[in-house]
Design a protein around this nucleic acid. Structure first.
Lengths: 180, 180
DNA sequence: TGGAATATGTCAACAAGGCTGTCATATTCG
DNA sequence: CGAATATGACAGCCTTGTTGACATATTCCA
C-alpha cells in the first residue's frame, strides 16, 4: 500500500524515486515582492515633482554613478532597447539633467555625463532610498548589512553577478570567499 | 580651523551642528534593483508561453494563495485600481484560470477562486521562483534564510508590515522578538 | 582609398499595464 | 424606500517596454 511521505505535499506527484518537490517558498516570494514595491515607491513619489518616471531615474542613476557612460553600456546595464532609452534620455537631455560629449577616441560614441542639476537629483534620490536601508539595518543585528548584500548578490543571475560585483567593487564579498 | 570629518564625503554640506549626511548606500541600492529584475525574469519567461504578463501572475498568485479572495481585498493587496485589475482578471476568467462565486453572506461580493488549471500554473510559477531562492540559500551559510526574511520584512513600510507578516504567519519573526 | 562594420538616432506602430472620470447594476442596510 | 456599498464597464490617456526599417557619422580593414 502507498505511504504518503512527510515532504510529499501540495500535489507533487510521485516521480519514480526522485526527490519530492519541496513546497514553494511562498513567504520569501511575497516578501520580496512587497519589499521591492515599497523600496521603489520612495523614489516614485519624489520623481513625481519632476514629472519623471522610473525609467528616467534608472538612467540618471547609472549615468551619475559612472559619468562618461556610453550609450551601448547603459543599454547593456538596463537591458532595454535604444528606442526605449531614446525617449527618456532625450527628456533628461532637454531638461538639462544629463549632457553628452563625443567620445575622445571614437567620435561616434556619445558619452553621458550628469550636469550639476542631475547630480543633485540623483543624490537626492539615492539618499531617499538609503534612508530606508538605514532604518532597516538599525532594526536588525550587526552584520545584517553584509548578510543582505550577500543574499542579494546570490539572487542575481550568475552570468551578470561577476560584472555587477566588480562594478560595485564587491569582489571581496563573493560567496566563495565568504563561506570560509 | 575646519577639520573635515571622516564621514563627511560626497559634498554633504556642513549643516550647523547637525549630523553629516551619510553617503548613499549605492551598493545595496543597485543590488536590490538587479536582484529583483532577475527574480521576476524567471516567471516572465514562463508566462510568455501563456501570453500572460506580470499583472496576471500577481492576481493568480494571490488568488491561489487565498482562495475566496474578494475583489476589494485583492485591490488592497496589489494597490491598483479596479479598472487595472478588471482587464487582467477578465482574461484570467475567460481563459479558465480563475473562477468567481458570489459571496455566501453578501451576494454583491464576487469571491475569486483558482481553477485546477489555475492552481497548476500558480504552482509552476511559485516553484520556479522557489528554485532561485533554494539555489541562493544553498550558496549561503545556515541562518541566511531567516536573516533574509527579516531583512525583507524590515524593508516593507511599517504600516503594511503587520498585515503582511500576519498573512504569512511570520509574527514570530517580528524584529522585536527577534533581536533578543 | 573605398566599402564594410560600428555607434547612434529616428520614425512608426504596437502592447502591457498603470491611471482618471463617469455611469450602470445589483445588493444590502438603515 | 432611499442611501450606501461592491462591482462592472466604457472611454481615453500615460509611461515604458517592444519590433522593424532606415539614416548618418565615423572607424576599420583589405
Amino acid at each position: 500500500m502507498e505511504t504518503v511521505q512527510l515532504g510529499d505535499v501540495l500535489g507533487s506527484k510521485r516521480n519514480g524515486g526522485e526527490e519530492p518537490e519541496p513546497s514553494p517558498m511562498y513567504d520569501i516570494i511575497e516578501l520580496f515582492f512587497f519589499a521591492y514595491r515599497d523600496f521603489v515607491g520612495d523614489a516614485d513619489r519624489l520623481l513625481e515633482n519632476y514629472k519623471f518616471g522610473r525609467a528616467h531615474h534608472r538612467v540618471l542613476h547609472f549615468v551619475n554613478r559612472q559619468p562618461g557612460l556610453k550609450i551601448a553600456e547603459i543599454l547593456a546595464i538596463l537591458q532595454i532597447t535604444k528606442q526605449s532609452l531614446g525617449r527618456v534620455l532625450r527628456e533628461l537631455l532637454d531638461t538639462g539633467y544629463i549632457e553628452v560629449r563625443p567620445g575622445p577616441v571614437d567620435r561616434r560614441q556619445r558619452l553621458l555625463f550628469p550636469t550639476a542639476k542631475g547630480r543633485k537629483l540623483a543624490l537626492d534620490l539615492a539618499r531617499l532610498q538609503s534612508k530606508r536601508f538605514a532604518r532597516v539595518f538599525e532594526g536588525l543585528p550587526p552584520g545584517a548589512y553584509d548578510q543582505a548584500v550577500r543574499f542579494l548578490l546570490e539572487m542575481i543571475d550568475p552570468g551578470d553577478r561577476g560584472a555587477i560585483a566588480e562594478r560595485l567593487r564587491l569582489s571581496s564579498l563573493s560567496p566563495e570567499r565568504q563561506r570560509a
